[in-house]
Nucleic acid binder design. Sequence first.
DNA 1: AATGTCCAATACTTATTTTGTATCATTGTG
DNA 2: CACAATGATACAAAATAAGTATTGGACATT
Lengths: 301, 301
Amino acid sequence: MELRHLRYFVEIAEQGHYGKAAKTLYVSQPTLSQQIQSLENEIGVELFLRSKRQIARKVELTEAGEEFLISAKKILDLSQKAIEQARKTGLHKQVLRFGAYKLALRERIVETIKLLTIHFPDVDIKLVELPTSADIQTALMDETIDLGLIVPPVKHNDLSSKMIKKGHLCVILPQNHFLANVDVVPLIALKEEKWVELNAQIHPFFDEIEQACRQAGFSRKNHIVQEVSSLELLASLVNVGIGIAFVSSLYDLSRETNIVVKPIIQSENDPLSIIEINNALAYKTGKNTPLIQALIGFLQN
Amino acid sequence: MELRHLRYFVEIAEQGHYGKAAKTLYVSQPTLSQQIQSLENEIGVELFLRSKRQIARKVELTEAGEEFLISAKKILDLSQKAIEQARKTGLHKQVLRFGAYKLALRERIVETIKLLTIHFPDVDIKLVELPTSADIQTALMDETIDLGLIVPPVKHNDLSSKMIKKGHLCVILPQNHFLANVDVVPLIALKEEKWVELNAQIHPFFDEIEQACRQAGFSRKNHIVQEVSSLELLASLVNVGIGIAFVSSLYDLSRETNIVVKPIIQSENDPLSIIEINNALAYKTGKNTPLIQALIGFLQN
DNA sequence: AATGTCCAATACTTATTTTGTATCATTGTG
DNA sequence: CACAATGATACAAAATAAGTATTGGACATT
């Protein structure tokens, strides 16, 4: 018997329905059928009524099942408590310096980071803000920070990283732009555009953009008409028609009006050839403590 | 986290030694290293001290580990109790008719069956004794018994079986027999011997023996000088030199003196060509209830 | 200091277990 | 009686755990 069996059993018992339980547990329905069977076989007792008639349209517990449900919940609860207790003791006042590049703070990742402080209340998480993803990596190498949010790829051999959020390159256009109504924008279609760009000092993926354009067969040199220092300004200038701009799908632009955001594709013929701009967590390879692993594991969900 | 992690953790903590814990858990040492690491990573806390110096020659728990140990034991204990409780309720006064062939009661399996009554005290286990393995199979088909101990193979399509004990064909010889000092006896070497044999009415694997001899190129017809009705008599007659006899390695002959037991091999050249005489549990295929599965699972250990 | 022993960690492969996909069988409903 | 709902099965795929061989670090001994 494993805790998995108990988790599945409790969910099915509470929902009274294999299919619904499967949904909330993010597994398939046959999985539950099988796991419950193996649990029943280990105990030697049927936990759910398998009688032919199912008038109530839901699975009912046997007498033994009712009892087992109470125990199972208690065990699962204790397991959770045991983990939390160990964390409390082991992480007490441990400091974790978490680095994020400036623009990350405009991304949806922020809420996730907030969750960290709730689930690991005994870790003293110090948020360190640095201009770019590259600066984060340098800081990790210097051990100025312990864990950092970056845009892959990593640029040092000694850094390990784990992707936590997938995103892709997008372009923002004024609403009256001739491409404003297409589904996706092939990169080459933007060959002749004028560009507004974030200041290179804070741009998390400037190099990736330039490389993609080169690959598509053009360069934006002399087409960048203005550099700005914030996403808001960027959106405003696009809005009034000064130029268009590249952004990541991970940015939260929901508050910017009168602009449209369109995904970029590398090849005109392949609608799946998006250009990935991801978020990853990085740490110095030698320093992958349980705490760091646990945080990464947590943030991946 | 799964209960497996807790089982491993508790065992290592109590033994203070990965290698020793691996032995009692019947897994390899690296397995424990890995599972403990994954547990630590999930919790985010080191449970064992990994300090450089290990003066005490044993692994020590961290403070968090000490606490976790207490919780882990409690959880494992509750899990066991939960199973027992469910069994108590679900199996209350359930009757299981367990069939065993006569000679099985002279085999080591008996002790194992006794364990059943201890671990499943609320099941009313009725022991049914029948002459041979074939009779057990008939009784299973008739549903006169629910579960039976047999010597494979099964002889009906509707019977399922699960091996629970491996054994092999042996010969018992008087101590002064010319083969009494070899390691293994090739079957063909017994071509000219005189035989004492169990009464065909109670012999669990007479057919298997005859077939093996035929395969080796001889027949015992006219060489069987005496039939007896018990293992004790069989051993006695061998002892005084009336003849030799085939037995299974599963028989408990520890109380018989002045005889030697030697494994038989089918081919002179291959010391691994033993002739299997196993024990299996069988049940009617349509009737594999959780109880039967649980009993089989239990007896396999 | 050099050498040997003990013990957990690592790298890599294999085996087992769990999960998913497709399909079925049964039951209750319109 | 056809149809929808729901859990069970069979089989393929993926994920996870376990095994084998080896390493590296800490002590002990010479």
